[in-house]
């Protein structure tokens, strides 16, 4: 039983992941509101866009910690998502503000389905990885 850097990283990852779960929950709900005409796309994009970068940065941050801690397996599980995030932001529509959602194109059904699917998949991924981090933390603490 040792409280080392890896354990610390896992704890941070656990906390961060909890936030990410909330982010993606919010994302899923927001997209769903768009689909069911509850919200104006301009407002919705304005509320979604500021959260995009924090989510990406938070995710990258604790993965970086995990990588430094030598938890390579955990890191490689998350690597595809990191790359996806980078690519997603790189190919975002031309816009002067932060974020990736453009109110003029978000209502396109393709975009909506993409965003919704993305939200659900991320939610599932974060949930599963939450328990994995929990396991990883305990495992490291016990080891």
């Amino acid at each position: 039983m040792a409280f080392n850097f890896a354990a610390f990283s896992y704890i941070i990852a656990l906390i961060g992941d909890a936030f990410l779960i909330f982010f993606s929950l919010f994302h899923v709900i927001a997209i769903d509101e768009l689909k069911t005409d509850y919200k104006n796309p301009i407002d919705q994009c304005n509320s979604l866009n500021p959260l995009v970068l924090p989510e990406y940065i938070l995710h990258m941050f604790f993965n970086l910690l995990l990588a430094f801690a030598g938890e390579w397996f955990t890191f490689f599980i998350n690597l595809p998502l990191i790359l996806y995030h980078i690519n997603r932001y790189r190919t975002r529509p031309v816009m002067s503000t932060v974020g990736i959602y453009d109110p003029t194109s978000i209502m396109n059904q393709d975009q909506l389905t993409l965003c919704q699917r993305e939200g659900w998949i991320k939610l599932a991924f974060y949930l599963i990885s939450f328990f994995y981090y929990l396991y990883g933390m305990i495992y490291v603490l016990i080891a």
């Binding site: 768009l34 689909k35 005409d37 104006n40 796309p41 109110p103 003029t104 209502m107 396109n108 059904q109 393709d110 909506l112």
Partner: peptide
């Protein structure tokens, strides 16, 4: 379902 709109406008909700 209407999938995509083409033209000059702003799509305010799925069918508006």
């Amino acid at each position: 379902a209407i999938h995509t709109f083409h033209g000059n406008f702003f799509v305010r909700s799925t069918d508006l």
